[in-house]
Design a protein around this nucleic acid. Structure first.
Lengths: 142, 142
DNA sequence: TTATTCAAGGACAAATCTGTCTTAAAAAAA
DNA sequence: TTTTTTTAAGACAGATTTGTCCTTGAATAA
């Protein structure tokens, strides 16, 4: 569904969000340990998210990645930054032009599924998911 | 969402289904022209589907690929054969173990979307999609 | 000011996916 | 039986994704 980069990206952001709620600013080593991901690859993804303004970063001692405590970041923004929005908009069968005027054979069926994914990602707040994480109700690795 | 191989596979099967309804047995050249896909790559995909028993094939003059007219083939079988069933079952964030006992932070939300996709693919009959194609209501290329 | 800690960035390597080419083998038609 | 048409299969090549390594530069603390 999502690329590896996107999976790591979401997991990293959720960990960072959880730490940010505790006024901590994890560095890449801590992040990749917490989410069990390859460190240099995860660094790339976090850098990309920081360039896009999704994450904030601070260099030097006690630096790391963080989010504003009152961030209203949604899942959809992470996905769109890393994987683009083709998953939310593209044709399920790969047609360049697929619309109600020129539909592929599964156009209507896919629209329902894709819109479900889109709505879900747009309605899911990173900070809320991070709160559940904090309670130990959900997990970021294994 | 799906791999290129899977996109071509579905489009190829739908074209073959449509032709089978007319008692025709298209060869690879005709198939890849009809769905606008790279011929040798499409051949691989069709061979894979034939090996899996999804498609039937016949060698020699007037040979080609075909389906039984009363085939009850569903979209889900094509997808599972080419891309595996990870898209229907796997964790959205890539966790090896993700279940209600050990859920990732988006487990419940993804389950809804994934089940929607799964149900849709399991309920969609290739022969019905092919019928709409025949009416010129839907398209397999551009 | 200096040393340390960190993100940023670029070059590289491996693996997978996508796509091509060539040859073999089967089946029908001539 | 021979030729032609077709699928089948394997080796290869390019592109993309995934993952690694090394250097640079910024920021803080000492």
């Amino acid at each position: 569904m999502f690329s590896k980069a996107c999976e790591y990206g979401i997991r990293a952001v959720l960990f960072i969000a959880k730490q940010s709620q505790k006024d901590l600013r994890p560095n890449i080593t801590e992040i990749s340990k917490a989410i069990d991901s390859p460190e240099p690859f995860t660094a790339k993804v976090c850098q990309q998210l920081a360039r896009a303004g999704i994450l904030l970063s601070k260099k030097g001692p006690n630096g790391g990645f963080y989010l504003e405590k009152d961030s209203t970041l949604k899942l959809a923004e992470i996905v769109a930054t890393i994987d683009g929005d083709n998953i939310f908009k593209g044709c399920g069968l790969g047609l360049r032009e697929c619309s109600s005027e020129h539909p592929c054979p599964v156009h209507d069926q896919f629209m329902v599924v894709r819109n479900g994914l889109k709505k879900m990602c747009e309605n899911t707040l990173v900070m809320e998911l991070a709160a559940n994480l904090e309670e130990g109700e959900t997990f970021l690795k294994v």
